[in-house]
Design a protein around this nucleic acid. Structure first.
Lengths: 216, 216
DNA sequence: GCGGAAACTTACCGATGGGTAAGATATCAG
DNA sequence: CTGATATCTTACCCATCGGTAAGTTTCCGC
């Protein structure tokens, strides 16, 4: 996965008045997502978005009904990214712990992409009731999927007996928090983060002394 | 630790005009913290805080210079709570993994208290530059402390060789995320969360099959 | 190359919310 | 009891920001 591929200077899309709504809409979206991550949704004004695209505020309303629709679409795109990887993992098969491990790896990577970050970093409270319900549905689906991977592992013996719900919260928390501290220009690459998290969150960090209850 | 002890109806403090600035100031603070958690800092207006205390907005300015000072104090109180437990753990001694485990347990509990939640859930971006620097200092201190516990464990052999920085991010992430999903009236008690997290974040969730590199 | 539509700008509105000025009212020391 | 002071209220200011109305400019099919 190329680093920072979703953060080019998108003002090029509005360099002329060529009629190409699709790419212009996309440029608005990526710029907005980036600003939402940089400054938060509340502090990123429509003027900020417009300014970065070198246009004026009302022009934005040719591509989106209102600010909330932009936010909602960010959630949708990010959720779609996550769901993609979820389906891929589920179809690949393997033991429970392998699926969890694969989930952690993929999810960690998504959390370093702006749209992915939006899903878990931005505040649902900024959405209207309907939109919030929609977004919650996406999130719940992700949570349920992770939980089912864990449950698969408990069932097939690859994961130790534990509360799957709490385990999912723990893993998801570690992953979701990535979008709070990750910096594209920082020293840690998405791959490093993803692989280490996949290891420590499944295997733990404690050194194994006594050989513990194996098999069943 | 009693559940929900920090969320009584604090409007009692302003029932009359008795001159007791200390308790009234505290009432403002706890009410504000609760509202910040409920609605976020941005959406919780000074009027909201006043309304819940059954006073009017300008009265608040007798106890705090401005809204940001309230926020800053929430950060300070929460950070103090965390630092307390950190010092206690460090003084107790034990192996690295024991200290990490104790850290997880205590920290998870703090994340279920409003002031503790404020520290990791609210947005630093709402603070002025100076205040943000102060808060970052608190957070960095916590992070460094956890990292040192992990490093202790690597040194004393109780923790497997790993990147202490990433391990700390992972654990802190799982814990910090608690303040996003925890509900005081929910089915999970702070103790349950704390103890399970302490176990799975150190021991992992994967079942141990082969007895792995023991002793040293 | 021209006409109509899309793309975009200038100028503006109204709501919200932090914060203040100035006055009213309760408290409490002496 | 009384006056000085802390406490609190009413009324207001103003900056910000989402969103719109109406007009201007560019595009592009015909």
């Amino acid at each position: 996965m190329a680093r920072g591929f979703d953060t080019p200077p998108h003002d090029k899309a509005f360099a002329n008045r060529r009629r190409d709504p699709a790419t212009k809409r996309e440029a608005v979206l990526t710029t907005a997502a980036q600003l939402f991550i940089e400054k938060s949704y509340g502090r990123a004004s429509m003027n900020d978005v417009a300014e970065r695209l070198k246009i004026t505020k009302p022009a934005l309303y040719h591509y989106f009904q209102n600010k909330e629709q932009i936010l909602l679409e960010c959630y949708r795109l990010g959720s779609a990214l996550i769901e993609e990887t979820l389906n891929e993992i589920a179809s690949h098969g393997g033991t429970g712990v392998e699926k969890v491990s694969a989930f952690i790896y993929s999810y960690a990577n998504v959390m370093t992409i702006n749209f992915g970050r939006c899903v878990m970093r931005l505040d649902e409270g900024d959405l209207s009731e309907d939109a919030r319900i929609e977004v919650r549905k996406y999130k719940r689906k992700i949570d349920r999927r992770l939980r089912s991977f864990i449950q698969d592992g408990i069932d097939d013996g690859s994961i130790t007996a534990c509360d799957a719900k709490l385990a999912a919260f723990s893993i998801a928390g570690a992953l979701n928090w990535i979008c709070q501290w990750y910096e594209p220009e920082g020293p840690l690459s998405p791959e490093e983060i993803a692989s280490q998290f996949a290891r420590t969150l499944t295997q733990g960090i404690a050194r194994r002394q006594r050989s513990q209850s194996n098999g069943h």
